[in-house]
């Protein structure tokens, strides 16, 4: 590894196991603690990543989570081959949700997923094509 090449961590987010959602963010959290990042930054990343993981499980039967870490920036890329987001602006509104009732009855699908990802990240990029899939890229900058 050269000095500028980011550390890369890959996780498969299992779409068949609802209760396993959030495992990747817990592992990332530990790794970032080991590298000495500030607890508040680590919390922001784990909250945003957790929301992303849940979204992939609810809407897209899982996907891939990739985390790239440099001392200056942590990038989280969540990629799925799910149904895609029809109206990104609408999905960004708090309380808007297309989650089915059975998911909502479990306390998820409150329409806070994307808004929280935006709130907790420093930069959020959504690339979604209906019927093809969604890729979300979040950047987090240490204070």
């Amino acid at each position: 590894m050269t000095e500028n090449e980011p550390l890369h961590f890959h996780y498969d987010v299992d779409g068949n196991n609802f209760t396993s959602a959030g495992e990747a963010s817990v592992q990332v959290k530990r790794m970032l603690r080991q590298m000495g990042f500030h607890p508040d930054l680590i919390r922001r990343i784990s909250v945003a990543m957790y929301e992303g993981e849940i979204n992939m499980v609810i809407h897209a039967k899982g996907g891939d989570a990739d985390v790239y870490v440099t001392p200056e920036c942590i990038t989280v890329v969540l990629k799925d081959v799910g149904p895609g987001i029809k109206d990104v602006n609408l999905a960004m509104q708090e309380g808007y949700s297309t989650a089915p009732d059975n998911i909502r009855s479990l306390g998820f699908g409150a329409g806070m997923g994307l808004p929280n990802m935006k709130r907790y990240s420093d930069e959020l990029k959504i690339d979604s094509v209906v019927g093809v899939g969604t890729t979300i890229e979040m950047k987090f900058l240490p204070a």
Binding site: L7, R33, Q34, M35, G36, P71
Partner: peptide
Amino acid sequence: EYSSAELLNADRAQSFRMMSEIE
């Protein structure tokens, strides 16, 4: 007192090299 007991190294660059090696 909070001091991450899991911290690899106090030097950030060194802890990055160590994490890469762990992987």
